[in-house]
Structures are given as structure tokens and as C-alpha cells.
Design a protein around this nucleic acid. Structure first.
Lengths: 254, 254
DNA sequence: CGCTTACTTGACATTGGTCAATTATGGTGG
DNA sequence: CCACCATAATTGACCAATGTCAAGTAAGCG
């Protein structure tokens, strides 16, 4: 349609730096052309800003190009439950594209760059690009898997195990993206989180989260200092978390 | 392909008793024809039997035609977390169709009749029936919404509120299906659950669940006897649960 | 340097968990 | 219809994990 028109885009899909990562499946030229036309722009969200708000009818669908955020729901009493974290390559706002309005919010932890897609055009995608439509289902299914695991974690594990599991989850996702180019052993991850975020993700109080983190530190399982998390003993950490997930598989990037 | 062949099917899609319910969107003749060919048979699962098992590679995708069940994950120590309940019209096994193997199990609470679809043919659906492909995404998104809410419930609410919320959730879904044809006020629902199921869904112990249920009963919010739940005061129950969800919207039935 | 946000820690309160025993309920064979 | 059995529900006593409150200390930033 407007395939040839110039858009205000710094990262055309064809030369997308994220797509260079082999964790994302190869797209055919046709697919890539469509996605590039599907993408209508880029948006930058500052750290701490709200990208999508519960109750709002979003006109857009986004893919995270860079940065980290989280999905959450709020309670009338001010309580907050973090549902999942959002990393580069994640599609957000699908709920708003499929239903009338968003049922959860998304907030940026770091500055975030988003690829913007018009929700209307998702129809065109389903009509003409079945492989991409399948990819969207695939991504939704992956998100559901994360939620299932998270719910098991919160519903049935002790505070210590919950934290261990969350750390392993974050570690796995960060490693898959190679966001840490630091060392061979991959035992350091950068996590732009506050202890309050961990508490809100795990259904714990801030104080108890802090005490549990310190305990894990004394046990030599994690180190925590200025936004860096050190994991000196992955195998003991995995054991504590009942971690038996594989590393992330190749996935689509829309 | 085998469109005209006779299959061992008691409930052809065209005359599907479930589809008669206006909660399901109208399908075009084309869509209906495809679904009917997509469906390769029916399967009956006895109450208490496991329909899909975690770790198994399912060759099938199912739609629940009648009966009730639940999705769950198990822990090495024998613990179990119920992720969601499964009602007529729900699609199950999508994870197995999209990934290599199931990451959760599904068990029948009552006898269940399932429509069986071959996972291979889901490709054909995506290629040729974009509206149905979109429907699958829609259903996945609905499931994700339930999970988000469930996680908020388990992570951030007290036992009493958790139960109130779950009861409202079940009430809403049952009413949408008109499984209770009893009264105008809709304040009685049949729930084939044991208190252990409620406990496992809410991340509570059996004993505490029991005590909380009795307390809710004494407060006049719920009555519980032989698989029937009476809700004498929906508005107070909603208030306790912070319930502000709309009733179920029209949805696809595949 | 002073301010604000994040992190720590101790004392204490409470929710919810565990154990153990008892009672109800439903189904089955006689 | 009854005795028996298995499963589910109920209850009390006690315990432990986690939450709340309050008072710091440390760290990042203009």
C-alpha cells in the first residue's frame, strides 16, 4: 500500500539490529517486506513511563526493539502484581488488538524503543501472511507458558524458591538475547529491577523479599549490587528453583 | 480432502448443540464446512481421567464439547497448581500444536466429550481460513487474560478474597454457557469441584480453604453442598472479590 | 551537601500451614 | 434396607512463613 513511502524509522526491519540475533528465526524476503510495511514507526518510552495502560483502548501493537519493561495489574488498594517482564523481541498490546481494551498495563524499566504497528492492519497480516499469523499465535502461546510457570511459582513455592525461579527465568531470557556480552560463563546479568519489583512479581512483601535475597546471598547463590546480579553457582540455584526448562528456542520476531 | 467421507462423529459441527448457544459467534457456511472437515472425531474422557499430560507430545488439538475439567502443573513434591478450568467451547492442547510438547496437564472433572483435530491440519487453517486463525489467537488471548487475573488473585489477595474471586469467575463462565437452567436470578451454579481443587487453584492448603469456605458461608456469601454452590448475595460477593469484569462476550467456537 | 529513593534490620503481628482426629457423604455388595 | 468402605468435609491445637511497622543506613543525583 504505502510500501515505497518514507517513514520516520531509524531501524528498518531489513537491517534490524535485533533480527541479527540468531535466536530469531529467519524471515523470507516476502515476510520481511510485509513486516516493514506493517511497521508504521518507532516510539521511545522513557524509563518508568507507562507504555500501555489498563482500561485504555490501544490503537497500536508494539514490538520491543530494545529495553526492558514489565506487564502488571493493579489493585484498588494500591497493590500491584507484575505478570511478566518484557524483553526485546516481545510483542505487546496484542490484547488491545484482539479485544476492546487492555486488561493490564505495561511500564518501562529502562528506556525502551518500540516498533509501532497499526492494529487495523493485523487483519491484512492474517489474510495474506499465514506464517506470520501463526507466529503471533506462537508468541501468545509462549507468553501463556511463562504465565503458567509464574502462577505455579507464586501459588505453590516458598519465598526462597520463588526468587530462585524468577532469577533463573530472567537469566535464561537475558542469555538468549546475549544482552550481556561480558563473560563466557554467563553468570552475570544486568537486571534493572528494584526489590519492590521482585516483591510485586512474586506476591511477597518488600521486607520479606529483602530478607530472602540477603539469605540467598549468604548462601552463595546470588549476589546483588547496583543493578547487577551475579550468579556464582547456577547448578545449586537451579536445584533450589526446581528448574528444568530448556534454554529458549528460536522464535519469530515480528 | 476427505470432506465427503463419513466419520465416526455423533455431533457434526453443523448441528452442534453447543454452537446453538448465542454466546458463540455465527460462523459462515465456509467456515463451518472447514471446521467440520478439520474435525476428525470425538473422544470421551471419563471423570478423573487425564486428557493431556505434561511432557507428552500431543498429536491432537481438542475442543471441549461438553463437561468440565482443569489445566494444571505438578511439582516434584506432589504439589499441584491448577491454572484454569476448562469449559465447553474451550480449545485445549494448543501448546502441543505450537511447541514440541505440553507444559501442563489437563484432567477431567466430569465426563468430557471432546472434538478432535489433527495438529498437522492447523497449517491448512492458517493458510486458508484467516478468520479462524484469528479466532485461535483470540482464544489464546482470552486464556491469557484469565491467567493474568488468576495470578493477581493468587499473588495479591487474602484467602477470602481469592475464593470470592474464583467463585465469581466460575459463576460468570457457567452463566455464559447457561449450564444452569434453574432460575432467573442465576444464583445457583453446579460445580463439580472438591475443596482440594479450590485449594490447588488458589495456592492455599486444604484445611485453610475449608475454614475460609465455612466463614464465607456464615457470612451469607456462599452456600456449598453436594456439588452445588449457592450465591445468595452476588453484590456483596462481587464487592469482596473486587469483581468488575463484564459478563463474557461473544466468542468463536472452533 | 542535602535530598530522594532504595535497601536493611529488628521486633512483633497475623495469616495461613501442618498434624491429627472426627464426622459426613456417597457408592457398593449383600 | 443395611453394613461397610472410600472419599470428602470439618474442627481444634499448634506452628511457621510471611506481613507490618518503625527506624535506621546506603546510594544516586542535582
Amino acid at each position: 500500500m504505502n510500501g515505497g513511502r518514507l517513514k520516520n524509522v531509524q531501524f528498518p526491519c531489513r537491517t534490524c539490529p535485533l533480527r541479527a540475533n540468531p535466536i530469531f528465526r529467519d524471515f523470507t524476503k516476502t515476510e520481511l517486506d510485509f513486516v516493514e510495511r506493517f511497521k508504521t514507526g518507532e516510539l521511545t518510552a522513557a524509563a518508568q513511563s507507562v507504555i500501555l495502560r489498563e482500561g485504555a483502548a490501544s490503537a497500536h501493537l508494539y514490538t520491543v526493539l530494545s529495553g526492558v519493561g514489565f506487564r502488571y495489574k493493579s489493585l484498588p488498594d494500591g497493590g500491584r502484581q507484575i505478570l511478566n517482564f518484557v524483553f526485546p523481541g516481545d510483542l505487546i498490546g496484542l490484547q488491545g488488538a484482539v479485544a476492546r481494551e487492555m486488561q493490564h498495563s505495561v511500564e518501562a524499566l529502562t528506556d525502551v524503543i518500540l516498533c509501532v504497528f497499526e492494529r487495523e492492519r493485523i487483519w491484512k497480516l492474517y489474510e495474506s501472511y499465514p506464517s506470520l499469523a501463526f507466529d503471533i499465535t506462537w508468541l501468545a502461546s509462549r507468553e501463556e507458558r511463562f504465565l503458567d510457570e509464574h502462577l505455579l511459582n507464586v501459588g505453590r513455592r516458598s519465598a526462597m524458591k520463588r526468587i530462585a525461579y524468577l532469577v533463573m527465568h530472567l537469566h535464561t531470557r537475558v542469555v538468549a538475547l546475549r544482552m550481556n556480552r561480558v563473560q563466557a560463563k554467563h553468570e552475570v546479568i544486568e537486571v534493572p529491577l528494584t526489590q519492590q519489583h521482585i516483591a510485586d512479581a512474586l506476591g511477597l512483601s518488600l521486607v520479606h523479599t529483602n530478607k530472602s535475597l540477603r539469605k540467598l546471598e549468604r548462601m552463595g547463590l546470588i549476589g546483588w549490587s547496583q543493578r547487577m546480579m551475579v550468579l556464582p553457582d547456577l547448578s545449586r540455584l537451579k536445584a533450589l528453583a526446581d528448574w528444568d526448562n530448556e534454554s529458549e528456542t528460536i522464535r519469530p520476531l515480528i
